[in-house]
Amino acid sequence: MQTRIDEIGADMYRLSIFVPEEAPPQGLTFNHFLITGDEPLLFHCGKRKMFPLVSAAVARIMPLERLRWLAFGHFEADECGSMNEWLAAVPSAELMHGVVGCSVSINDMADRPPRVLSNGEVIDIGGKRLRYIDTPHVPHGWDAGVMFEETTKTLLCGDLFTRVGNGPVITDSDIVEPSIVTEDLLNYTSLGPHTGSTIRRLADLKPRVLAAMHGASFSGDGAAALKALGDHYDARLQVALAV
């Protein structure tokens, strides 16, 4: 495996590892996003076994010791499996996550206490402003959340818009239909009465870039894509209830 590095916005880097064995036969990308500034932030720590690859990629962009913040969407191996490796490698780095994630997992599992973020709290990393937003059970667990970079209007949307395969770095093509196809394949979303509305609320941010963990990032009308995806899950729920 190798890590591909691409700048998808001003001082915002996508560090992507393609794993052909995941989600066969198409394979799956695992994307990590480094946002540089006075206090650089890495969104998605990555799997523990991928730490050598991801950390080497970060080191190609900047010295590791500059890394200040570690964040992720929810407690899962590909999101935070290597968090303690990062904490050991960068003594000044600090984890941050929402109230639920810290309470139910991170306080116990992390080697250093995390910074607890309230819903809507903004972290200014110097040149970039990250807003944390709770999205409980969307797409998975109770602890789920996303981050929105306000200056570039980039939504770090985690597993939303997951797509299999090794596509382009960033696209302006439709990402809704391919993510629905992937949902049919993997059934990765926790479908409930608030799934659609939670996704549609993110459209109010009017993101210009959707930085997905699995698949190409999207450049364009992010609000329209989020509304369409939310509507799809509402329709999917009605079908499930009818069955």
Rank of each mutant, 00 (worst) to 15 (best):
Phe75Asp: 07
Glu65Ser: 14
Ala71Val: 07
Cys80Glu: 06
Ala57Arg: 04
Asn84Pro: 03
Phe72Met: 07
Ile61Trp: 00
Cys80Ala: 14
Ala88Val: 02
Pro63Gln: 12
Pro63Phe: 13
Leu67Ala: 07
Arg68Lys: 14
Ser55Ala: 15
Ser82Ala: 15
Leu67Met: 11
Ala59Phe: 05
Glu76Tyr: 12
Met62Gln: 15
Trp69Glu: 05
Ser82Pro: 02
Phe75Arg: 02
Pro63Met: 13
Glu79Val: 00
Val58Gly: 10
Phe75His: 14
Glu76Ile: 03
Pro63Glu: 12
Val58Trp: 12
Ser82Gln: 04
Glu65Arg: 13
Ala88Arg: 14
Glu85Ser: 11
Ser55Gln: 11
Val58Asp: 07
Ser55Thr: 08
Gly73Pro: 14
Leu67Lys: 03
Ile61Pro: 05
Phe75Asn: 06
Asp78Asn: 14
Arg66Phe: 07
Leu87Ser: 10
Ser82Glu: 01
Phe75Val: 12
Leu70Phe: 10
Leu70Arg: 03
Cys80Arg: 04
Pro63Arg: 14
His74Pro: 00
Ala71Gln: 03
Ala88Asn: 13
Glu79Arg: 02
Glu85Trp: 02
Leu70Ala: 06
Trp69Asn: 05
Ser82Leu: 02
Ala71His: 00
His74Trp: 15
Gly73Ile: 02
Ala57Pro: 01
Ala88Pro: 01
Glu65Tyr: 08
Asp78Pro: 10
Arg68Asp: 01
Ala77Gly: 06
Ala59Gly: 11
Ala56Asn: 13
Arg60Glu: 15
Ser82Phe: 01
His74Ser: 13
Glu76Trp: 12
Met83Asn: 00
Phe72Tyr: 14
Val58Thr: 12
Trp69Met: 06
Leu64Gln: 11
Met83Trp: 01
Val58Asn: 12
Glu79Ile: 00
Ser55Lys: 06
Leu70Ile: 07
Trp69Lys: 08
Glu76Ala: 13
Glu79Gly: 01
Phe75Ser: 03
Met62Arg: 14
Ala88Gly: 13
Gly81Glu: 01
Ser55Asn: 07
Leu67Tyr: 02
Leu70Glu: 06
Cys80Lys: 00
Met62Thr: 13
Leu67Asn: 09
Met62His: 08
Ala57Asp: 04
Ala59His: 08
Ser55Leu: 08
Leu64Asn: 10
Val58Cys: 15
Arg68Gly: 04
Glu76Ser: 10
Ala77Cys: 03
Arg68Leu: 04
Ala56Gly: 14
Cys80Phe: 09
Arg68Tyr: 04
Glu85Ile: 00
Arg66Asp: 11
Trp69Asp: 08
Met83Asp: 00
Pro63Val: 12
Trp86Ile: 02
Leu67Cys: 07
His74Glu: 13
Arg66Lys: 15
Trp69Val: 06
Phe72Trp: 15
Ala56Tyr: 04
Asn84Ala: 04
Leu64Glu: 09
Trp86Arg: 03
Ala57Ser: 14
Asn84His: 02
Trp86Val: 02
Met83Ser: 01
Glu65Trp: 06
Ala57Asn: 00
Ser55Ile: 07
Ala88Gln: 12
His74Phe: 15
Glu79Ala: 13
Leu70Asn: 10
Asp78Glu: 10
Ala59Met: 11
Ala71Leu: 05
Arg66Leu: 11
Gly73Ala: 11
Glu76Lys: 08
Arg60Ala: 14
Arg60Phe: 00
Trp69Gln: 06
Phe72Arg: 05
Ala59Ser: 15
Met62Asn: 09
Arg60Trp: 00
Ile61Glu: 07
His74Gly: 09
Ala77His: 11
Ala59Thr: 12
Phe72Cys: 09
Ala88His: 10
